[in-house]
Design a protein around this nucleic acid. Structure first.
Length: 284
DNA sequence: CACCAGGTCTCAC
DNA sequence: GTGAGACATGGT
């Protein structure tokens, strides 16, 4: 990958298989929006805008140093996806191979653990459009204000200062209690996310599931998208359907996709929805 | 105006 | 251990 600075922008050349439309609109993050062909959103308390010019990636308003320390990892550009795809090809799974080809440009974002965990608690039994709104409402309510009227995702301590009723009035509904309790557990140290990060995936899921409102699916999403647990394999209604349809021999259990199971999950999920011709238009 | 949303909890069988 | 219902709310 070749990185060059041009004014306020960073130009990345020689990156294979990177498609912002697939990356930001496949339900792994909730704070990026597409406007005039450019995906823009907030993470790490900073705004990032991602556009493409042919197969070059344009990062707007991004310094070289922020790229090196934050965005390179965030965007999945520290991983060798070509090598990963080769490894997945070696599984000899024809359906996965087709899904992988269709969703080639997908990357797993490496989001911040707390934000991912909290966001996926909010996501349960909710649609993407509303999840986005609720996350923004939470940020506005107690996130640090940034330049340009943006708000950072609030830390657990800031969220813990709100009452459950405050959260309910933001529209969180019955999830208000979950978010409130979760925030307090993390703020007071009884749930140590850094410790969770060091656990093997199965144990990390167990640890997170002790919190009320966090089940296996939410825990798996948080671990995959926020804790760098590439082998986490979130099973939702879509994946359940896919497993029954294409992997009947595994009888409802997850096939062994190995250490990159989470990426497989994203390929399979995207492929099924894309083929079903169902796009939820969340990208506006 | 119903029905649903990338679930989770609870309480029966 | 498996399986319905309830749960808050707003999008479509």
């Amino acid at each position: 990958m070749d990185v060059q600075q041009t004014g306020r922008n960073l130009l990345l050349e020689g990156v294979d298989a990177f498609d912002p439309d697939l990356i930001f609109d496949c339900g792994q993050c909730f704070r990026f929006y597409k406007k005039e062909g450019i995906w823009s959103g907030i993470a790490f308390g900073k705004r990032l805008s991602v556009g493409m010019d042919g197969d070059r990636i344009i990062l707007q308003g991004c310094t070289k140093s922020d790229f090196d320390t934050l965005w390179k990892g965030y965007l999945g550009l520290s991983e060798d996806y070509a090598a990963i795809r080769r490894e997945l090809s070696a599984l000899g799974d024809a359906h996965l191979a087709a899904a992988m080809e269709a969703g080639k440009g997908i990357r797993i974002l490496r989001q911040e653990p707390w934000e991912a965990l909290c966001s996926f608690v909010i996501s349960q039994n909710n649609n993407i459009a509303r999840i986005r709104k609720l996350v923004e409402a939470v940020c506005k309510a107690c996130g640090r204000e940034l330049e340009g009227g943006d708000f950072a995702f609030p830390g657990p301590d800031a969220l813990a200062r709100l009452s459950e009723d405050d959260l309910r009035s933001l529209g969180l509904g019955y999830r208000a209690g979950y978010v409130s309790q979760l925030s307090r557990s993390v703020a007071d140290g009884s749930l140590d996310l850094e410790a969770v990060r060091h656990l093997p995936t199965a144990q990390a899921i167990e640890a997170l599931c002790r919190v009320r409102g966090i089940g296996v699916k939410v825990a798996s999403c948080a671990l995959l998208f926020g804790f760098g647990k590439d082998d986490a394999f979130p099973v939702d209604v879509w994946i359940r359907r896919i497993l029954c349809k294409y992997y009947p021999e595994s009888e409802g259990k997850s096939p062994n996709f190995g250490r990159y199971a989470g990426l497989c999950q994203q390929y399979l999920f995207y492929y099924e929805r894309w083929r079903g011709g169902k796009s939820d238009g969340a990208a506006q």
